[in-house]
């Protein structure tokens, strides 16, 4: 067994243990854990309808509460399109 395989198996075991224990330590699906829920979640769920008038809470968060983050996403898309158009242009000889 080469040293490369030993390193790979060790890395795999560490990551697998990390993932398994991480999955076991999450609280059960669908149960409301009041101690570990941030206040921001409950505030957004309670007040989105009256503050923004949008039924879709996700869109309200993306475009209103966290609009600055969406601006970054739009900038990423713009940069990607500009780069692809720049690279894949047809050079006329």
């Amino acid at each position: 067994m080469s040293i490369r395989n030993i390193v790979a198996v060790t890395f795999f075991a560490v990551v697998a243990l990390f993932l398994i224990f991480g999955a076991l330590m999450t609280h059960p699906f669908g149960e409301f854990d009041e101690d570990n829920t941030p206040e921001m979640d409950q505030y957004i769920i309670d007040n989105t309808q009256s503050e923004t008038g949008a039924d879709n809470v996700v869109t309200a968060v993306v475009f209103d509460y966290r609009g600055f983050d969406t601006l970054g996403e739009a900038t990423v898309l713009f940069t990607a399109v500009a780069g692809v158009i720049l690279i894949f242009r047809r050079v006329k000889k």
Binding site: E51, G53, A54, D55, T59, A60, F63, D64, G67, T70
Partner: peptide, 23 residues
């Protein structure tokens, strides 16, 4: 602008639909 008057409709939510169109 028609918030806090019952359920939302196509003409509520302020700038969110306009931003949706732009994006």
């Amino acid at each position: 602008n028609g918030t806090a008057k019952g359920l939302s409709n196509i003409n509520t939510a302020g700038v969110i639909p306009l931003m949706n169109f732009a994006v």
